[in-house]
């Protein structure tokens, strides 16, 4: 249920201020090629997870209990909030408010940092317990998927940071802000993937 609600929220959030007339996708088409490619990779991995789990239900259930649901849930809230900040940032630049845009994105950036920190603590706990991708099939998927996603968050933060710097310099305005929308699309994708990842790996039994 959480997945569904969150997805709907995300869609609603995206739709409110972003769509201009005659434009279907915010940001740029080429970036959407990459976003679709990324979704495809994650999609395949999610399906692979589901099939492998179906064959090893007990192992997966037992291993799943060792994950910290609390930190996963906190991270979900953190990312959803950050996505909201990004939406506000885009809305701000559409009104030509560079400063506000940069501030909202800064908020999202900092929340990205919170996500990363919590995730590092989680990874550290697993590595300290001598758990690796070679431990069993569940941890293989858990570590692969979350680490791959983790790197996407880092990437998203790099993108946000460069947009913040440019926004502060006044490089965007109400008419020209494709860069902001493109970065925002990437960040929403990262958020969206986590919203699927979290219940899939941490919760569903």
């Amino acid at each position: 249920m959480l997945t569904q609600n969150a997805t709907i929220n995300l869609v609603e959030l995206q739709q409110v201020p972003i769509l201009k007339e005659g434009e279907n996708l915010p940001g740029d088409f080429a970036l959407w090629i990459f976003i679709f490619a990324e979704m495809l990779v994650f999609g395949v991995l999610f399906v692979a997870y589901a099939f492998t789990r179906a064959n090893n239900v007990e192992l997966f259930n037992a291993s799943q209990l060792t994950l910290s649901r609390t930190s996963g849930a906190i991270n979900t809230l953190v990312l959803i909030t950050s996505s909201y900040f990004v939406v506000r940032g885009v809305a701000a630049i559409k009104l030509g408010l560079s400063k506000q845009c940069a501030d909202w994105l800064m908020g999202a950036f900092l929340l990205g940092g919170v996500f990363i920190s919590i995730k590092i603590v989680e990874f550290h706990a697993k590595f300290a317990a001598d758990i690796s991708m070679s431990t069993n099939a569940f941890y293989m998927f858990y570590l692969s998927l979350t680490f791959f996603h983790f790197m996407h968050v880092l990437m998203g933060m790099v993108i946000l940071a460069s947009i913040i710097v440019k926004a502060r310099r006044g490089a965007y305005n109400a008419q020209h802000h494709t860069g902001v929308e493109t970065g925002a699309s990437f960040w929403h994708m990262v958020d969206f993937l986590w919203i699927i990842l979290f219940p899939l790996i941490y919760i569903i039994r």
Binding site: F29, A30, L31, M155, T178
Partner: peptide, 16 residues
Amino acid sequence: MSATFTKSMARNVFYG
């Protein structure tokens, strides 16, 4: 490909 997608953005995506 849409005109707003500049070559420098394509280049950044490539390096990134």
